[in-house]
Each structure stands twice: as C-alpha cells, then as structure tokens.
Amino acid sequence: MAELSVRSVLVTGANRGLGLGLVQHFLRMPKPPQWIFAGCRDPKGQRAQELQNLASKHPNIIIIPLEVADPSSIKAAATKVGEHLGASGLNLLINNAGILKGNSLDTETLEDMREIYTTNTIGPLLMGQAFLPLLKKAAQGCPGSGLSCSKAAIINMSSYAGSIEDMYVWEYGQVVSYRCSKAALNMLSKCQSLAYKEHGILCVVLHPGWVQTDMGRSLSLLPPLTLDDSVQGILKVLSSLSEKDTGTFLDWEGKVMPW
C-alpha cells in the first residue's frame, strides 16, 4: 500500500479529540506534511493549550483561527492559508469540526437543530466552497488523471449515526439533531464528489468509529475505540483512496458504510 504523502493538509476542530489526534499522527509520519494547518475556534484559549505546545515545537504546524459556523471566519482562514501556500495549493482538507447535543425527539429544539446543522453540515459546505480554488491549484500541480489524497481531496468526518439504513446505537442515544446533520453531510459529500471530480478533487465521507473522545463519551458509555487506533486506521484508509472511492461512505478500516 502506498504511503500517504501530502505537502499540505488542513484539519478543522484541531485543538482536541480526533482533530488533535490527526495533527499528532501527521507529525509522526515518515514524511510529514510540509504544512499542517490546524483550525480551531479559540487558538489562545485553554482548550487549545496542547495544540499551542505542539506548534511551538513543530514549525510546520500553522494554527488558524477558524469558526466553521461563521462564513467570514472561513473566508479569512482561506486567505491566510492561501498566503502560505501560494501557487502550490492545498492537497487535503479534513472537515473534522463537529458538535453533538444529546437531545431526544421529544426534547429537540429549533435552536439546537440550527446550531448543529450550521456546524456539522453548512460548515463543510462553506469550507469546500472557500478552499476550492486552493484544492484546484493542488490538483492542477499534480501529474496524472487519477484522484487521491496526495493530489487533492476533501474528507468529511461523518458518523455511522447518520446512516438512515442502519440506525446505529439508537438504544444508547437518539441525538436527533446530530443524526440528521450527519445524514445531510453524507448527501453533501456525494454532491461534492460529483461536482468536484472534474477539477481532480477526491471527496469521501468517513466514519471514524465510536472513539474515546469528549464527544464520544457524551452518551455516558465508554466508546470501544481508542483515539490512536481510529487515527491510525483513518490515515491508512486515506493512503489507499483512489478515483473509484470518490463519493463513498467508509469507516476507519475502509469498510463501506450503509447510507
């Protein structure tokens, strides 16, 4: 299997959980990315302390202030990343930032549904739009006609909980707004795969597993998957993706998930 090799990557929600784990594992690769852009809401806040410490030791980490629910923040982030990358463009965009509230069907509210949709679904839509010019540049700069994460790709972190066909862990938590937002993200990813293929950009939606993070523990059960196992699996899957995979819904082991 080919080793994942990317010159530049942007990870949203990179200050903790899966996002921080991805940044850490990118650094440990035999050939780390030249640029790792770590997007987070409040780079100077307490929750970003571990990311700040990491960036102070690794000059290839650039922390980007980024609130994916705010269009102006997304545009500013795209401008800043573009200034660093110039004509080379961005190889890999990982839309990882997401939020969850434990609402049931009876307790769901307009405000919570709107907030969760804005972050989990609209955020990745706007990120794709804003970073499309940089992804196009990266694709144009890579020889060959195939698609891969080393060339140009959008990876949307979804969830098995967004599967309509198989209502995963319903008995442990209805989390209605979260499920709906991820089902909508799956459709968005499919649309992106069709629209962006002509530009040489791979688009895949991934279920990282039920992971031992703050979000993963929100259902008051210990999730079965460690952060390291999830991220190692994700990077292995990313290294194997090709044109045949664009528009698919996969898990951290590369298995096809039910829509």
Rank of each mutant, 00 (worst) to 15 (best):
S5K: 15
S8I: 09
V9Y: 06
T12R: 03
A14Q: 04
N15M: 04
R16G: 06
G17Y: 09
L18Q: 04
L27R: 04
A38D: 03
A38P: 00
C40N: 02
C40M: 01
P43H: 04
K44V: 02
G45R: 01
E50M: 14
A55Q: 09
H58D: 13
P59W: 02
I61A: 11
I63W: 06
I64S: 05
A69F: 00
S72Y: 05
A78L: 07
E83D: 10
H84E: 14
L85P: 03
G86E: 01
N91F: 05
L92W: 06
L93H: 02
I94N: 06
A97Q: 00
L100E: 10
K101H: 06
T107L: 11
T107S: 15
T107F: 02
E111P: 00
D112C: 00
M113V: 02
N120Q: 00
N120I: 01
G123C: 00
G128Y: 06
A130W: 07
P133A: 06
P133I: 04
L134F: 02
K136R: 12
K136M: 07
C142I: 14
G146L: 10
C149S: 09
A152P: 02
A153Y: 03
I154T: 10
N156D: 11
M157C: 09
E165A: 15
Y168F: 15
Y168W: 14
V175W: 14
S181R: 03
A183S: 14
A183R: 08
A184D: 00
L185G: 01
M187E: 07
K190Y: 10
Q192V: 02
S193A: 15
S193W: 09
L194N: 12
L194D: 09
Y196W: 13
Y196C: 03
Y196T: 04
H199C: 08
V205W: 00
V205A: 13
W210S: 13
Q212A: 13
S218K: 13
S218D: 13
L222H: 13
L227W: 03
S230P: 03
S230H: 06
Q232L: 07
I234D: 07
L235W: 06
S240N: 11
T246C: 11
G247Q: 09
K255I: 06
M257C: 15
